[in-house]
């Protein structure tokens, strides 16, 4: 009898191998937990990789203080349910200077609260490897990144000088202060992620499902007014519309799409006929061409 692995089984096995490789080689790994659907899948894979043990590393959420409230609630609920060790880091300097997406724009906000916040957290705990949920199909500079992606002592990525990555033999050696970002979902596509969530029945933040929500149309995007920190401009009105999110981040920077897809099947059905990419809903990628690469060179995930 010949059995062959299905597509998702192959992807799952590769990710599990990557998780174990990190656990075996690094003294202080951490998983970057961003609460989105990719993080949910990542977390599920981590549980599988070390079963019956718990994942031998903590989960870190770099909280920009502008995440959707439902994300924070979901995060705390998952931490309790799965019993993992959750670390939350906020860039207090940014909070003190009241850095926010409305006054400072997405670039400055993301840099200070996310990129710098992440660097602070990594330095504070001295993590030598950090898992992220990035996929190569998300963006063209991500498509260029290794699964084990080397970072120098100031967390910078040097895209022109990456280590060769042969077969599934990963070079995990680093000097003091240096670190590796590890991307177990490198070879997954957006469709794979949804399909896996469906197959494995993985919990995700309800914001991915369509529901009537109070949104404001601004700069060509539908922004959910998640709290009172968002001030309306003179010509703006809050409307209740049937919307959902394809990707989640800071609420003022994340556009909703009009949709009535309220089940996973419907989401996948919608995705199959989608005409725009998922990052379209993120203001940060549109700021300037090559912006993702630039952020990554500075230490963004």
């Amino acid at each position: 009898m010949t059995m062959a692995l299905t597509h998702l089984q192959r992807l799952e096995a590769e990710s599990i191998h990557i998780f174990r490789e990190v656990a075996a080689n690094f003294s202080k790994p951490v998983m970057l937990y961003s609460v989105g659907k990719d993080s949910s899948v990542l977390m599920h894979l981590a549980m599988k990789a070390f079963y019956p043990a718990k994942p031998p590393f903590p989960f870190l959420h770099v909280d920009t203080t502008w995440k959707f409230r439902e994300m924070i609630a979901f995060r705390d609920q998952m931490a309790e349910k799965l019993g993992f060790d959750l670390l939350v880091h906020v860039n207090e300097d940014g909070v003190r200077d009241n850095i926010n997406p409305f006054d400072h724009g997405s670039n400055v906000h993301t840099h200070v609260m996310k990129t710098v916040g992440l660097r602070q957290a990594l330095d504070k705990y001295g993590f030598d490897a950090a898992f992220g949920g990035a996929r190569r199909d998300e963006e063209k500079s991500r498509a260029k990144e290794r699964i084990f992606s080397f970072r120098n002592a100031s967390h910078a990525w040097d895209p022109k000088n990456q280590r060769p990555e042969m077969w599934n033999i990963y070079n995990t050696r680093i000097a003091a202060g240096e670190s590796i970002r590890v991307f177990p979902l490198s070879n997954w596509t957006e469709l794979d992620i949804w399909q896996y969530i469906l197959q494995e029945d993985i919990p995700i933040v309800p914001l991915y499902f369509a529901k009537e929500r109070p949104v404001v149309e601004r700069d060509g995007m539908l922004i959910l007014k998640d709290d009172d920190r968002m001030k309306l401009r003179p010509d703006e009105v809050v409307e209740n519309r049937l919307v959902r999110f394809r990707t989640l981040g800071c609420y003022p920077l994340t556009g909703a799409i009009e949709s009535s897809a309220d089940t996973l099947e419907a989401i996948v059905g919608e995705m199959l006929t989608a005409r725009t990419s998922e990052r379209q809903g993120r203001l940060i990628d549109r700021d300037e061409a090559g912006s993702m690469e630039k952020k990554k060179r500075e230490g963004y995930f």
Partner: peptide, 9 residues
């Protein structure tokens, strides 16, 4: 554009 096609599951 409201994303169309809600195919039967």
């Amino acid at each position: 554009v409201p994303a169309k096609t809600l195919e039967p599951s």
